[in-house]
Design a protein around this nucleic acid. Structure first.
Lengths: 176, 176
DNA sequence: TGAATAACTGAACGATCGTTCAGATAAAAG
DNA sequence: CTTTTATCTGAACGATCGTTCAGTTATTCA
């Protein structure tokens, strides 16, 4: 995943990957039928981990506002810790076969829907005001994922401070 | 640019590019010293066009709120019309040499600063409330660029409607 | 310990890569 | 029309690509 993130899928050879894990290139084929499947498996595992982690953290019973804050903090924390996987899972979609692409895209859609449902719940409860919940969900995810472009562990702000800043932005965005 | 966006820089051969423009691969070297420079030129031209287009559209004298709305609408319109260039200019940064990377990154920084200055002006005028103008600027750009992941010309909403939806989100985000 | 299985090596396959360049062809200049 | 310049072709270069596989080495199991 790190090599794919650093150089791009097509630019990384099976020999480079093999060197990285201390074997010859041929040995990799005991673990993957081909390079494409290797990419797909990495991406699917990342998306599965994302959905499962959120399932665990989602305070389902709570009010929409608390759930949205939980989502905001979760998304930032999860994605900054897995920057390589996030980058690859977005950028290398084009290198997947049609059906593999569809599978990963579907998982992404499910994740967006998790957020959308929180937004709709908040709207029904009268605490959020949203013209287009689906679009707002995608906008919020884009906003939050953007942290990855600048956040560094050694930076001025720690992760908790960043989460708080972004939660403030998300809150304004949905409360109007 | 289209080929790089569709398949990735490393996955596109000089022969493919040559075929696309109706010559043999060797002829390309009358126009670029190598493949890397070709990528860099495409990216720099895109960033130059972005900065120049905003310079033209920025209603500099107006109040911060009007300028921010103009920025929001401009960014969405410009970037959706150049989706390939936007994608490549973000994703293929890793395939640039160190100095070419620095050059493109600097142009991106300048663009972010254009927005940051609007935000600071609004804060000084007492119409925006922002804890971290720089981070807000990057967050807004990420939010707006996210339109590219889902917007299609043939979709339910036309570009003007999308702009209006996003301007509403941006406005809430900065006005608190 | 010995047999069975799993894992890995090292070489090889045809294909394709970016790039170069001598020679052919087209366009511009005088 | 002739010369000069710009542009392009087509072949070639060494390098590297993903993948296969017979043979070797390591591990597991009885």
């Amino acid at each position: 995943m790190r090599l794919f993130a650093q150089h791009g899928f097509a630019a990384v050879s099976m020999r480079q990957i093999a060197t990285e894990v201390g074997v010859q290139a041929g040995a990799l084929y005991n673990y993957t039928p081909d390079k494409q499947s290797l990419l797909f498996d990495l991406m699917r595992e990342h998306m599965d981990a994302l959905l499962e982690a959120w399932q665990t953290e989602d305070p389902g019973g709570a009010d929409a506002r608390a759930r949205l804050e939980a989502f905001t903090r979760f998304h930032i924390r999860f994605n900054t810790r897995r920057a390589d996987a996030v980058f690859v899972s977005y950028m290398e979609l084009r290198n997947l076969t049609e059906e593999n692409f569809a599978a990963v895209t579907e998982l992404r859609r499910v994740y967006e829907t998790r957020l959308e449902e929180i937004l709709r719940a908040g709207q029904d409860a009268g605490i959020f005001t949203l013209a287009e919940p689906r679009i707002t969900a995608m906008a919020v995810i884009a906003l939050l994922t953007g942290v990855n472009t600048w956040y560094r562990d050694a930076g001025r702000l720690n992760l908790d401070e960043v989460e708080t800043l972004y939660w403030d932005m998300v809150r304004r965005l949905v409360e109007g």
